[in-house]
Design a protein around this nucleic acid. Structure first.
Length: 178
DNA sequence: GCCAACGTTGGC
DNA sequence: GCCAACGTTGGC
Protein backbone atom coordinates (compact mmCIF):
# COMPACT_ATOMS: atom_id res chain seq x y z
CA UNK A 1 0.00 0.00 0.00
CA UNK A 2 1.22 3.44 -0.88
CA UNK A 3 0.53 6.29 1.43
CA UNK A 4 0.78 9.67 -0.17
CA UNK A 5 1.40 12.63 1.96
CA UNK A 6 1.08 15.94 0.26
CA UNK A 7 3.19 18.52 1.97
CA UNK A 8 2.94 22.12 0.83
CA UNK A 9 6.53 23.19 0.41
CA UNK A 10 6.28 26.88 -0.06
CA UNK A 11 4.08 29.42 1.58
CA UNK A 12 3.75 32.91 0.29
CA UNK A 13 3.92 34.40 3.71
CA UNK A 14 7.28 34.50 5.37
CA UNK A 15 6.02 34.65 8.89
CA UNK A 16 2.80 32.72 8.91
CA UNK A 17 3.99 29.45 7.55
CA UNK A 18 1.55 27.19 9.31
CA UNK A 19 -1.37 25.96 7.21
CA UNK A 20 -3.83 27.31 9.75
CA UNK A 21 -2.11 30.65 10.05
CA UNK A 22 -4.53 33.29 11.18
CA UNK A 23 -6.24 35.05 8.37
CA UNK A 24 -5.74 38.71 7.94
CA UNK A 25 -7.92 41.61 6.98
CA UNK A 26 -7.65 44.24 4.27
CA UNK A 27 -9.45 47.12 2.67
CA UNK A 28 -9.70 47.64 -1.08
CA UNK A 29 -10.72 50.94 -2.60
CA UNK A 30 -12.64 51.34 -5.81
CA UNK A 31 -14.36 54.19 -7.52
CA UNK A 32 -17.87 52.82 -8.07
CA UNK A 33 -18.06 54.65 -11.40
CA UNK A 34 -15.40 52.18 -12.51
CA UNK A 35 -16.19 49.06 -10.50
CA UNK A 36 -18.73 48.99 -7.70
CA UNK A 37 -19.76 46.38 -5.19
CA UNK A 38 -22.93 45.91 -7.26
CA UNK A 39 -20.72 45.15 -10.25
CA UNK A 40 -19.00 42.51 -8.14
CA UNK A 41 -22.38 41.08 -7.19
CA UNK A 42 -23.21 40.78 -10.89
CA UNK A 43 -20.05 38.84 -11.73
CA UNK A 44 -20.24 35.08 -12.23
CA UNK A 45 -19.98 33.42 -8.84
CA UNK A 46 -19.84 36.96 -7.40
CA UNK A 47 -16.12 36.77 -7.98
CA UNK A 48 -13.72 39.12 -9.74
CA UNK A 49 -10.02 39.75 -10.10
CA UNK A 50 -8.76 42.95 -8.57
CA UNK A 51 -6.78 44.32 -11.50
CA UNK A 52 -5.36 47.72 -12.27
CA UNK A 53 -3.40 48.46 -9.12
CA UNK A 54 -0.31 50.43 -10.17
CA UNK A 55 1.26 51.44 -6.91
CA UNK A 56 4.23 49.59 -5.46
CA UNK A 57 3.16 49.42 -1.84
CA UNK A 58 -0.28 48.18 -2.82
CA UNK A 59 1.35 45.76 -5.27
CA UNK A 60 3.51 44.33 -2.51
CA UNK A 61 0.47 43.56 -0.42
CA UNK A 62 -1.26 41.91 -3.37
CA UNK A 63 1.81 39.92 -4.37
CA UNK A 64 3.29 38.97 -1.01
CA UNK A 65 0.80 39.30 1.80
CA UNK A 66 -2.82 38.79 0.88
CA UNK A 67 -3.74 35.15 0.72
CA UNK A 68 -6.70 32.90 0.16
CA UNK A 69 -9.17 33.06 3.00
CA UNK A 70 -8.27 36.59 4.03
CA UNK A 71 -11.20 38.95 4.29
CA UNK A 72 -11.51 42.41 2.82
CA UNK A 73 -13.66 45.47 3.09
CA UNK A 74 -14.94 46.92 -0.16
CA UNK A 75 -14.67 50.71 -0.07
CA UNK A 76 -16.22 53.22 -2.44
CA UNK A 77 -13.99 56.22 -3.03
CA UNK A 78 -14.67 59.41 -4.98
CA UNK A 79 -18.32 59.39 -4.01
CA UNK A 80 -20.28 61.36 -1.46
CA UNK A 81 -19.90 60.13 1.14
CA UNK A 82 -16.96 57.79 0.63
CA UNK A 83 -17.82 54.63 2.54
CA UNK A 84 -17.22 51.00 3.38
CA UNK A 85 -19.97 49.19 1.51
CA UNK A 86 -19.40 45.52 2.16
CA UNK A 87 -17.11 42.60 2.75
CA UNK A 88 -15.49 39.95 0.58
CA UNK A 89 -13.27 36.93 0.90
CA UNK A 90 -10.04 36.34 -1.02
CA UNK A 91 -10.42 33.26 -3.22
CA UNK A 92 -7.05 33.42 -4.95
CA UNK A 93 -3.76 34.85 -3.72
CA UNK A 94 -1.55 37.14 -5.76
CA UNK A 95 -0.86 36.36 -9.42
CA UNK A 96 0.25 38.50 -12.36
CA UNK A 97 -2.11 41.23 -13.49
CA UNK A 98 -2.53 40.39 -17.15
CA UNK A 99 -4.13 43.73 -17.95
CA UNK A 100 -0.64 45.24 -17.73
CA UNK A 101 0.41 43.16 -20.77
CA UNK A 102 -2.41 44.33 -23.02
CA UNK A 103 -1.55 47.44 -25.08
CA UNK A 104 -5.23 48.20 -25.53
CA UNK A 105 -5.96 48.09 -21.84
CA UNK A 106 -6.38 51.27 -19.84
CA UNK A 107 -3.86 49.94 -17.31
CA UNK A 108 -1.29 48.76 -19.84
CA UNK A 109 2.29 49.01 -18.63
CA UNK A 110 4.98 48.23 -21.21
CA UNK A 111 7.50 47.77 -18.41
CA UNK A 112 5.62 44.72 -17.17
CA UNK A 113 5.96 41.57 -19.24
CA UNK A 114 4.81 38.01 -18.64
CA UNK A 115 8.32 36.72 -17.94
CA UNK A 116 8.83 39.34 -15.26
CA UNK A 117 5.48 40.70 -14.19
CA UNK A 118 5.51 43.95 -12.30
CA UNK A 119 1.85 44.14 -11.24
CA UNK A 120 -0.28 41.63 -9.40
CA UNK A 121 -3.87 41.01 -8.49
CA UNK A 122 -6.00 38.75 -6.31
CA UNK A 123 -9.47 37.28 -6.72
CA UNK A 124 -12.21 38.28 -4.34
CA UNK A 125 -15.69 36.94 -3.82
CA UNK A 126 -18.52 39.06 -2.48
CA UNK A 127 -19.60 38.08 0.98
CA UNK A 128 -21.95 40.81 2.14
CA UNK A 129 -23.26 44.13 0.91
CA UNK A 130 -23.86 46.18 4.05
CA UNK A 131 -27.39 47.45 4.58
CA UNK A 132 -25.85 50.35 6.45
CA UNK A 133 -22.57 51.36 4.81
CA UNK A 134 -20.09 53.09 7.09
CA UNK A 135 -18.98 56.47 5.86
CA UNK A 136 -15.51 57.88 6.25
CA UNK A 137 -16.56 60.69 8.57
CA UNK A 138 -17.90 58.12 11.02
CA UNK A 139 -14.73 56.07 10.82
CA UNK A 140 -12.69 59.16 11.56
CA UNK A 141 -14.53 59.88 14.79
CA UNK A 142 -14.91 56.34 16.11
CA UNK A 143 -12.72 55.38 19.08
CA UNK A 144 -10.41 52.54 18.19
CA UNK A 145 -10.03 53.57 14.57
CA UNK A 146 -7.55 56.40 15.16
CA UNK A 147 -4.73 54.37 13.66
CA UNK A 148 -6.68 52.79 10.83
CA UNK A 149 -4.81 53.44 7.58
CA UNK A 150 -7.95 54.82 5.96
CA UNK A 151 -8.47 57.49 8.60
CA UNK A 152 -4.97 58.90 8.33
CA UNK A 153 -4.62 62.30 6.73
CA UNK A 154 -3.50 62.09 3.14
CA UNK A 155 -3.92 58.33 3.10
CA UNK A 156 -4.50 57.16 -0.44
CA UNK A 157 -3.21 53.64 -0.47
CA UNK A 158 -5.78 51.59 -2.39
CA UNK A 159 -4.85 48.26 -0.81
CA UNK A 160 -4.35 48.50 2.90
CA UNK A 161 -4.16 46.29 5.97
CA UNK A 162 -6.91 46.32 8.59
CA UNK A 163 -6.40 45.00 12.11
CA UNK A 164 -8.70 42.39 13.57
CA UNK A 165 -10.02 44.94 16.03
CA UNK A 166 -10.70 47.47 13.27
CA UNK A 167 -12.48 44.72 11.37
CA UNK A 168 -14.76 44.13 14.35
CA UNK A 169 -15.42 47.80 15.04
CA UNK A 170 -16.39 48.58 11.45
CA UNK A 171 -18.75 45.61 11.41
CA UNK A 172 -20.33 46.87 14.62
CA UNK A 173 -20.82 50.30 13.06
CA UNK A 174 -22.49 48.68 10.08
CA UNK A 175 -24.70 46.56 12.32
CA UNK A 176 -23.19 43.44 10.78
CA UNK A 177 -21.95 40.25 12.37
CA UNK A 178 -18.31 39.35 11.81
C1' DG B 1 -14.19 71.06 -10.00
C1' DC B 2 -10.60 72.35 -6.67
C1' DC B 3 -6.49 71.30 -4.65
C1' DA B 4 -3.59 69.08 -0.75
C1' DA B 5 -1.07 65.20 -0.24
C1' DC B 6 1.44 61.69 -2.34
C1' DG B 7 4.16 59.01 -5.63
C1' DT B 8 7.10 58.88 -9.74
C1' DT B 9 10.32 60.57 -13.13
C1' DG B 10 14.39 62.33 -14.82
C1' DG B 11 17.96 66.08 -15.20
C1' DC B 12 21.88 67.22 -12.93
C1' DG C 1 21.21 60.70 -4.66
C1' DC C 2 18.86 65.16 -4.60
C1' DC C 3 14.86 67.47 -5.71
C1' DA C 4 11.88 70.16 -9.07
C1' DA C 5 8.41 69.14 -12.04
C1' DC C 6 4.82 66.48 -13.13
C1' DG C 7 0.95 63.14 -12.65
C1' DT C 8 -2.53 60.94 -9.67
C1' DT C 9 -5.63 60.15 -5.82
C1' DG C 10 -9.51 61.16 -3.47
C1' DG C 11 -11.83 64.11 0.16
C1' DC C 12 -14.28 68.06 0.14
Amino acid sequence: MTVRVIVPLVYKRNLNYLPNAMKRYWLLKSEPSGFSIDDLKAEPNRTAHWDGVRNYQARNYLRDEITKGDEVFFYHSKVDPPRVVGSCVVTRAGYPDHTAFDPRDKHHDPKSDPTNPRWFMVDIKLKKIFKNPVDLATLKTTPGLEKMVLTQKGSRLSVQPVTENEWRIVHALAGEKT
